[in-house]
């Protein structure tokens, strides 16, 4: 018995000695939900790269969940070295709290977003309702499936995409845009709990005529349900969705991992990192790699949240805060 305890104490002591060493070489990436596949491929690539560069092996830890949940956890003290998110408003929140640099979007190229995506329509085989563009989504008798526009990132991008499209029409203004979006929402029989739930509702429960989702989701649907089951339709104008990354300053300063964190995020822009994005059906920023995968990414006219809405810091309160344009559509007081 006492031998057992002694052994156990020895193990514990060894473990404690090893802990700081291990901690120096580990990096926690706190990320949004569906980035799992991307980083599962990316992390081993970076480990190899870092080993070749510095001779150190590094342990990479991932955490995935809904992005605003993740950001709240980081604000509450989850020790993330880096955050990789799917919406600037979430990183803005950390900037406000002083956890990431105020100008985080300028610390890396391309608005600190190593890849992009866009919102597309997914329609049933053969496109029976002849859906080609946004106006087809507001026609009577067409059912549109989307996640909750107020509570999910996916839904918010859909909402802004439709709004931006309506604004861009001749004679388009805030009022006509809101009317257009209101008509679109009237065609929604439900608001799904999240992106994947919307996909299940559309593909498996066969509810609705069109699903609005990320371009990158379409490939996943193909893998799950078969390519012939649906058609992807690119609208004439859509929104460019950006995925900002940032270093969490207090954490890397405390852990001494700034160089590692910087390299980890920079490597996303390397040819290998960009190629990985393309393979995960996210549009790479590098023109060469984009060209290489041109078949997968047909050209599409897009606008950014910054261009049309003046950034998420303006778009979020105007549309998704309580009393914003979404609430106005439903609460006619």
């Amino acid at each position: 018995m006492s031998r057992f305890i002694r052994q156990w104490c020895a193990t514990l002591a060894l473990g404690l000695c090893a802990l700081p060493v291990l901690a120096e070489l580990s990096l926690l990436n706190v990320s949004y939900d569906v980035a799992r596949d991307f980083y599962k491929d990316y992390n081993p690539m970076f480990q190899k790269h870092w080993k070749a560069l510095s001779g150190e092996s590094v342990e990479l830890k991932q955490s995935h969940a809904g992005s605003s949940k993740q950001v709240r956890a980081v604000a509450d003290g989850l020790e993330a070295d880096v955050v990789t998110m799917n919406q600037a408003s979430d990183v803005d929140f950390l900037a406000e709290k002083g956890l990431v640099a105020k100008d985080y979007a300028k610390r890396f190229p391309n608005n600190a977003s190593p890849y992009t995506s866009t919102m597309v329509f997914i329609v049933r085989k053969g496109n029976p309702k002849a859906i080609r563009d946004w106006p087809d989504l507001v026609k009577p008798g067409v059912q549109v499936i989307l996640p909750h526009p107020k509570n999910t990132g996916n839904g918010r991008y859909t909402y802004l995409a439709a709004w931006g499209f309506a604004l861009g029409q001749s004679g388009g203004n805030e009022r006509t845009a809101q009317e257009f979006v209101a008509r679109l929402l009237q065609n929604a029989p439900l608001f799904a709990a999240g992106g994947r739930d919307a996909t299940t509702t559309f593909m498996q429960r066969r509810i609705g005529d069109v699903l609005v989702s990320f371009e990158s989701e379409a490939e996943l649907i193909a893998r799950e349900f078969g390519k012939g089951e649906f058609t992807v339709v690119y609208p004439s104008l859509s929104i460019l969705t950006e995925f900002p990354v940032a270093i969490v300053n207090p954490v890397v300063d405390k852990k001494g991992t700034r160089k590692l964190a910087q390299a980890y995020l920079e490597y996303l822009w390397s040819p290998a990192g960009q190629e990985n994005a393309a393979q995960n059906y996210l549009r790479p920023r590098s023109p060469e790699i984009l060209k290489k995968y041109a078949e997968q990414f047909p050209p599409v006219r897009t606008f950014t949240v910054d261009e049309v809405f003046g950034g998420w810091s303006k778009a979020f309160p105007a549309h998704f805060k309580d009393g914003g344009s979404f609430d106005q559509i439903y609460l006619k007081k």
Partner: peptide, 22 residues
Amino acid sequence: GNMPLISEITPLLIISKLEQYD
């Protein structure tokens, strides 16, 4: 289905507030 005023439960509104960091 989570439609405003029809099938939204109060816990969803609480989550909605948290989504706004409120």
